[in-house]
Amino acid sequence: MRKKFSLVFVAALILAAFAGTAFAKDVKIAFIPKLTGVGFFESGGKGAVAMGNMLGIKVKYDGPSTASVSGQIEYINNFVNQGYDAIAISALSPDGLNQALKRAMKKGVIILTWDSDVNPRYRTFYISQGTAQQLGELLVKMAADQMDDPKGSPKKVAFHYSSPTVTDQNQWVVVAKKVIAEQYPNWEIVDTVFSHEDAQKAVQVPTALFQAHPDLDAVICPDANALPGTAQAAENLGIAGKVIVTGFSTPNVMRPYVKRGTVKAFGLWDVVKQGKLAIYVANLLVQGKQLHVGDEFDVPDVGHVKVSPNSVQGYDYQGEVNNGIILLPERVVFTIDNIDDYDF
């Protein structure tokens, strides 16, 4: 008797929690981040939902809570089963999602990528913040611009980001290291350290790095945890302002460090706009529009964009129609002068 009761209770609980869920038959687009709970992706999600409201379509922002390929696949499969019309995803792995994306396309779902791309065969458009080349160069430029004589005396730099297996950050850093070797042979890369998206480690690791190399000139941190962590470590050790700390992160988390002068400049792109652009393009495709390489159009709140061929990212594959790369109009370098213009 008790057993029956408890089971009924469990059932009632589930029912009560979700009975309200209704299903509309409008355009439904899913916007999937690498992981939820990170300022960068949450802001992208907000942009996506805002564009959805503007267009009068349903946009759902959700994804795995840890950066895991299997988690993303789960979401793709589920959105496909739920009959979504389009999916825009920031892929954790360039090829890990292939099978799930292939199944989605077979079932008529339009696939876009944003922030991190997949193999171009398995998506229509990639809403890109810039090529690995552009972003890697930007990392080096931001560090060099803060030096008095970047090409003069010997310099010591280090890299600090999330992990040796994360795709995009490694691609940028590979470019950055190549740029340093070519243009700044006087820079010595003393170490490349990782904090695995652990905020506590993101402070501990650069602390040890600064102490092990007291003459370090710059730390380059293209990761949302690593940049504030390194800035905090510099402040804790009382060397803020004496050492260059730069990289990629969101303005809101970096604002206090910029205001105090610990971080003079860091970069990113406007991820809110990226989210808006992804949803706008997805909706165009759902409505049946055909886009070709070279097409140009205006997007409200975002600006003028152009469809580029896949080759700008170094791919060989190029589909006839509805396949290519759409670059965000600009990347932003945040400094004390412009940081208050951004809220994400």
Binding site: G37, S65, T66, D198, A199, Q200, A202, N225, V253
Partner: peptide, 16 residues
């Protein structure tokens, strides 16, 4: 201690 040392709270704070 964690919040004071790091100055922000991430969603995977103290994960693992």
């Amino acid at each position: 201690v964690f919040t004071s040392q790091i100055g922000f709270v991430s969603m995977n704070a103290a994960d693992g």
